[in-house]
Every structure is written in structure tokens, then in C-alpha cells.
Design a protein around this nucleic acid. Structure first.
Length: 428
RNA sequence: GGAGAGGUGUCCGAGUCCGGUUUAAGGAGCUCGCCUGGAAAGCGAGUAAGGGUUAACGCCCUUCGAGGGUUCAAAUCCCUCCCUCUCCGCCA
């Protein structure tokens, strides 16, 4: 959510952001609703002041035994009470409408975000590593996985339906190994504190991070409860500090968490139907930061580097994409995607998305801090990034590390995590 | 799921039976000032958030877990819900 005063004073900036992000919101209504709301508040508050003063007077008169005088005021105040009730209802309506409008306004893109409409306008700012030249015809991970009998799509479909997969033996272990490895790197080398969050949250938390109200159709709601399955660990972790005023000394807060993620992926029908790239449930290691506004740019660059480190240690070729305005999403002011080389697609595919939300999420979730002992509170900046998506990393390892006879070499850094194993081979 | 107890400001804690003198006592902590060679103690002042208004100082409104109701007036009375603690049941 944007700051109300900011929107009031910078309506053109907001309109510009809407245009750049290729989205719309009832911004034309804003001025009218905002104005009416303030007008009503002034009226009702004046009456409330009168009521407060009269109530005190009534108390005094009653104590002095001047019941008749008191009754006179009471009679008069009955009308005032009715008026207040009426006006309060109107204020409430305008508050709700204003809130609705505010919730639909997207974050303002940072100055250096490239202009563009969609994915094709994203800018590659870095490539690392060379895609491997195969002297044989490489297999896709779904073929490798089935042939090695470590991915079972049929069983996944049988038990849960499309976009669910059983990982078996070495693949299952590789999944766990990667979670462990990534969390170890982030906690030991990058200074993040690990948390293990709830995988279900209530509605308020989904609003806090901005998944609702805009993306309801992408989320799973548990029937007959108020719970949503989390689409990312970002949701529970960011909401850990919802409606809190943090001490300056507590900042920056850096958390890393493993979680399963659940996404309905409405509208993705037909995309990436094969393999484990796009599943309704996947694992992810997520980094979340709460920082002072002045430090957020620098913290963001570090966050991206932290995610990159994982790919570098795994020796997987990747590139860094600077998301254009049209592909930024609703809540981000700046976003980089890390894309790993996938031989079967003959292109790079997203394994991490790193966003700087500035104060957008913090304002919605009411996460603040006090810059100086006597100063007013300010919203923190929140940042997050995958470090990394596990399933896609598994797929990337399978494809990039495959041998001519369909086996998979374990990346050097993972060998210890895989019980000293060098290779995944077919096992009966 | 059942029974009981509770939720008050940064923290502790009074007030709730019986609505008005509490626009929340008292204490602790914290900040600033006085005192001191320095410190402690002592003394004095300050000590929330959100909103409205204002050039600013300030003034005003709202908030006692949340929401609704009764009333001229609610921390206090009524209803619904949430959370915490204790015990029981169920369960990995």
C-alpha cells in the first residue's frame, strides 16, 4: 500500500506507475472520496467534541444535584448522538471505499527499472558460466527422471492430479540435500537467521504481504476454515512482524526459511505441463529482510548476490534479469529474476525472484521502527528473494549434470549432503 | 472438543461488582534538565499509535484483545468472536 499523503500529493506519479505497470485502478475516484471523507470527519469530530464536553458537564451537574439542568443537556444531546451515529456510518463507508482504492494501487517502480510491457522487455544485466556443450543429445529432466525411476509423474497424477509428482530415492534425497545445503550457506556464510514457518496462514496475513485481494485465484484456501496454504514463506515470515514497532537496534533482520509452497497457478494451463518446473506444490528456501529505508538498495544487491552464490557453488550457468515495469508485479519497486540454464528448453528458466518492496508491504502490514529515540516511527523496507526454488534446481542439476548414458553426476558441493555419493544411477 | 481463569499504555499493575470526580491511579524503565569533581541517590519535566486541522506551535477525534449493541455518556452493562494460561478429552 502506498502512503495516503503521498498519493494525495503525487497523483500523477501514481497514474504514471499504473501506466508503466500496465494495470489500472479506480484512481479517478480517489480525489472525490478523499475529499468527502475528510469533510465528514471534520463534521463528526466537532460533534464528538461537543458530546465529550457535555458529558463532563452532565456528570458535574448530577454530582451537584442539579438534575433538572442536567436533563436539559441530555435532551439536547440526544439529537447530537443521532447525528454522530449517522455521520459515523458515512465516514465508515468512505473509509472503506478509500481503503479499497488504496489497496488497488501498485507500488511505484524504482527510477532505474527498465520500461517495458512484458517479459520480452526484461533486461539481462549479467550472465555467469557457459551453457555446457553436449557431445550427445541431452535428455529433458522428465525423461531422465522416469528412466532412472526417480521421478514418478503417473503416481503423482494418480494420488493428487496434474502438476503433482513423487520424487523417489536419489531425487527425494537430492531435494532434501539442496534444502539443507542452501540453508547452511545462507546461515553460515551470509548471516541469515533460520526460521521454520507455519504453512497455513489466515486471511489477514495474506493481505499483509499483498497476495490478497488481487491474487485470490492463485491461492489455495482450506475449505470451512480461514486458512490459506502459503504460496511462499514470504507470507508467514513478513507477517511475523506485522503491527509491530521494531527497535532500531534490531535492524536489519535477515531470515531464511524452508517451506513448501502452494500455488493454484490459475491461467497457467498448458504451460510447462511436463516435468517438475511448474507444480501446485513445491519446495523453496526463501530469504526475507527487514531493513532501514536508507539501506534497502544496498541490502537488495546483497540479497541478489546471496542467491547467486548458490548457483555459483552448484556451478550452474545462469543469468540475471532486470524486470521491466510491465513485469514487475503489483508489490515490487524493483525486481531481479535469476534464471538457470536448462538444456531441455534450450534457454534460461527462473529459479529465483528477488524483490525490493520498499515500504509498500511494510505499510500494509504495519511494520515500523523508530529511527531515533524521540523520533516518529517509520515503515521499514522489506525485501525478499528465493534462495532458491528447490524443484527447479533439481531439474537444472539433472539436466546440466547428465551423462551420455543417462546418469546424473552430483555437484561437488552436494556430495557430502548426498552421503558421499558421486552419481545417480539406475537402481532396480 | 469440554470446564475454568485471564487479555488495561514500553513493562508491572489498580479500576470493572454499583456507568459520569480516571479524557486510565500507582510503580518500574527510558529520555531530558537540576544537583555533583564524576557517578549514585535525590529533585523536576517528559514518556503511545492512528486520524483531522494548522505555515508552525498547538488544538481536536479515536484506541483499555476484536467487532457489534444499550446509553446523553462505556475500561466498566449486554451479545458475538479471537488469543493466552490451567485442567480434561482426542491426537503425531
Amino acid at each position: 500500500m502506498l502512503d495516503l499523503g503521498f498519493v494525495r500529493d503525487n497523483i500523477d506519479v501514481v497514474k504514471d506507475a499504473l501506466e508503466k505497470k500496465g494495470t489500472s485502478a479506480p484512481i479517478d475516484e480517489f480525489e472525490d472520496v478523499d475529499h468527502k471523507r475528510r469533510e465528514l470527519i471534520q463534521k463528526v469530530e466537532q460533534l464528538k467534541q461537543e458530546r465529550n464536553e457535555s458529558s463532563q458537564k452532565i456528570g458535574e451537574l448530577k454530582r451537584e444535584g442539579k438534575d433538572e439542568e442536567a436533563q436539559e443537556i441530555i435532551d439536547r444531546m440526544q439529537t447530537v448522538a443521532d447525528e454522530i451515529k449517522e455521520l459515523d456510518e458515512q465516514v465508515k463507508k468512505y473509509n472503506q471505499r478509500l481503503e479499497e482504492i488504496m489497496l488497488q494501487l501498485p507500488n511505484i517502480p524504482q527510477d532505474d527499472v527498465p520500461l517495458g510491457e512484458d517479459e520480452s522487455d526484461n533486461v539481462c544485466v549479467k550472465t555467469w558460466g557457459e551453457p555446457r556443450e553436449f557431445d550427445f543429445s541431452p535428455q529433458a529432466h522428465w525423461d531422465l527422471g522416469v528412466n532412472l525411476d526417480i521421478l514418478d509423474f503417473e503416481k503423482g497424477a494418480k494420488v493428487s492430479g496434474a502438476r503433482f509428482t513423487f520424487l523417489k530415492r536419489a531425487a527425494a534425497k537430492l531435494e532434501r540435500a539442496l534444502i539443507d545445503f542452501m540453508i547452511d550457506v545462507h546461515t553460515k556464510e551470509h548471516g541469515y537467521e533460520e526460521v521454520f514457518p507455519p504453512f497455513m496462514v489466515h486471511e489477514k496475513s495474506m493481505y499483509g504481504t499483498g497476495q490478497l485481494p488481487k491474487f485470490a485465484e492463485d491461492s489455495y484456501k482450506v475449505e470451512d476454515t480461514d486458512y490459506y496454504l502459503i504460496p511462499t514463506a514470504e507470507v508467514p515470515i513478513t507477517n511475523m512482524y506485522r503491527e509491530e514497532i521494531l527497535d532500531k537496534e534490531d535492524l536489519p533482520i535477515h531470515h531464511v526459511a524452508y517451506s513448501a509452497c502452494f500455488r493454484a497457478e490459475a491461467g497457467a494451463h498448458g504451460r510447462d505441463t511436463r516435468g517438475i518446473i511448474r507444480q501446485h506444490q513445491f519446495n523453496k528456501v526463501e530469504m526475507v529482510k527487514f531493513v532501514e529505508p536508507e539501506k534497502s538498495k544496498e541490502e537488495f544487491e546483497k540479497l541478489v548476490e546471496n542467491a547467486e552464490t548458490i548457483l555459483q557453488k552448484l556451478e550452474l550457468p545462469y543469468r540475471v534479469m532486470d524486470m521491466c515495469t510491465g513485469d514487475l508485479g503489483f508489490t515490487a519497486a524493483k525486481k531481479y529474476d535469476l534464471e538457470v540454464w536448462m538444456p531441455s528448453y534450450d534457454t534460461y528458466r527462473e529459479v529465483s525472484s528477488c524483490s525490493n518492496f520498499k515500504s509498500f508491504q511494510a505499510r500494509r502490514a504495519e511494520i515500523k521502527y523508530r529511527p531515533e529515540p524521540e523520533a516518529n516511527t517509520k515503515h521499514v523496507h522489506t525485501l525478499n528473494g528465493s534462495g532458491l526454488a528447490i524443484g527447479r534446481t533439481v531439474a537444472a542439476i539433472m539436466e546440466n549434470y547428465q551423462t551420455e548414458d543417462g546418469e546424473i553426476v552430483i555437484p561437488e558441493v552436494l556430495k557430502n549432503y548426498m552421503g558421499g555419493r558421486e552419481k545417480i544411477t539406475y537402481q532396480k
